[in-house]
Amino acid sequence: MLSTTQLNTMLELQDKMNTKVNPQWLTAGYQYLRAAMIEAVEGIEHHGWKWWKAQTKDLPQLQMELVDIWHFALSAIIIEFDGDIQRSAKTISEQLESGETSVKFDGKDYHFSQQGILDNLELLSGLCAAKRFSVPLFIQIVEQADMTPDELYRQYVGKNILNFFRQDNGYKEGSYIKIWQGQEDNEHLVEVLNSLDIQLQDYSNLVYQGLRQRYPN
């Protein structure tokens, strides 16, 4: 289960990134759950669902879609609580601790703990289309995609910090160097993430510092 520290870290990072894009993002009317719905459908594509042709599941891409869904879901939750990070974290924790294994949608109970990942992704996309999000359902999908909550946290923080790092080093202006020492920045990120304990209180700051130490002056 995601810890309070992990939830607060992710929510704060999401708020900072959204604010970097638009300081008035809380009232801009962005459709974050619509974006999450699209990512869920893309996750179905990466898994493979077509019975009339041979398909290979692309697990890393599916996991990346889930990380993107979580970015959008956190944004929607923060908006729901008018930017209050503590209340947002408390609500997510309560949902995770509820032991909920089903959701009611369109008058029908869906027991997502008994469904496969494709049915659950479809259910999640339907809920998002209806402007709803179930954290327990999402975590069920995460685990079905061979990710632990800790791995979700690790990948989420990594992607978020890399976005910050790129922006801080000229990505928008076109001066950012994406490849150095023979590796792309996301490869350097993986090495930094693998070198750090995710339980560290200042984990996200250490990820940023790790990238900065490697980046060419």
Rank of each mutant, 00 (worst) to 15 (best):
I177D: 08
I79C: 08
E122I: 13
I85S: 09
A76H: 05
I79N: 08
F81W: 07
M17T: 11
N194H: 13
L196H: 01
Y215D: 06
W49D: 02
I85G: 08
N163R: 00
S125M: 03
E80N: 13
P149E: 10
N160G: 03
E42D: 07
T27A: 08
K57A: 12
I69D: 03
P136T: 03
Q24V: 03
M10D: 05
T56N: 14
V142I: 15
D106T: 12
Y32G: 00
L206M: 11
G116T: 01
Q24R: 11
H71Y: 11
F105A: 11
Q155T: 04
S3W: 06
Y215P: 06
E12I: 09
Q183P: 05
D82V: 02
N8L: 13
A73L: 03
E80W: 09
M17K: 14
W70Y: 15
L66H: 03
Y110C: 06
Q6A: 11
W25C: 00
F72Y: 14
I79K: 14
Q6P: 03
F138A: 02
L2C: 07
G83Q: 03
T4P: 09
I177W: 07
K53E: 07
F165A: 01
Q213M: 12
H188S: 02
T101Q: 15
I179A: 11
D109L: 12
K20V: 00
E187F: 12
D106A: 15
L200D: 13
R34A: 14
Q95E: 15
E191H: 10
Q14T: 12
T19Y: 00
